[in-house]
């Protein structure tokens, strides 16, 4: 249930940004979560509903953008969908590949008023 800690990070960032902007209410919080992070959507939403109580994000909607895991081949430059159990380049067969996305745990933006 590390979603609780992750959600705490999301909320504190959102609340700080809203306070800095002089807002009184947060209506929407947008986050990007990489598919390799093992964050469970349902657990994240449960944590969010628990932690937002009594804050200015009390009624906020949580929008989760799931980020697909993608890699780039260091040998031939091909970009492809990353398969963690078979991380080789589908074009040239090289194993020298670099993950370009899929580990994100990022708060993108909030809507506040």
């Amino acid at each position: 249930m590390h979603e609780m800690g992750i959600c705490d990070g999301i909320l504190s960032s959102a609340l700080r940004a809203a306070e800095d902007a002089g807002a009184r209410r947060i209506t929407r919080i947008e986050v990007s979560i990489g598919e390799l992070t093992e964050v469970v959507d349902e657990a994240l939403r449960f944590a969010f509903e628990t932690l937002r109580r009594g804050t200015m994000a009390d009624q906020a909607e949580l929008v989760v953008n799931l980020v697909q895991a993608r890699s780039e081949c260091a040998d031939c430059g091909a970009a492809f969908r990353h398969d963690r159990f078979d991380p080789k380049c589908p074009e040239c067969g090289s194993y020298v590949v670099r993950l370009t996305q899929g580990k994100e745990l990022r708060i993108d933006a909030i809507d506040a008023e």
């Binding site: 960032s13 959102a14 940004a17 807002a23 745990l105 990022r106 708060i107 993108d108 933006a109």
Partner: peptide, 8 residues
């Protein structure tokens, strides 16, 4: 408000 920050 754009934040673009790592959650952790």
């Amino acid at each position: 408000i754009d934040i673009a920050k790592d959650v952790l």
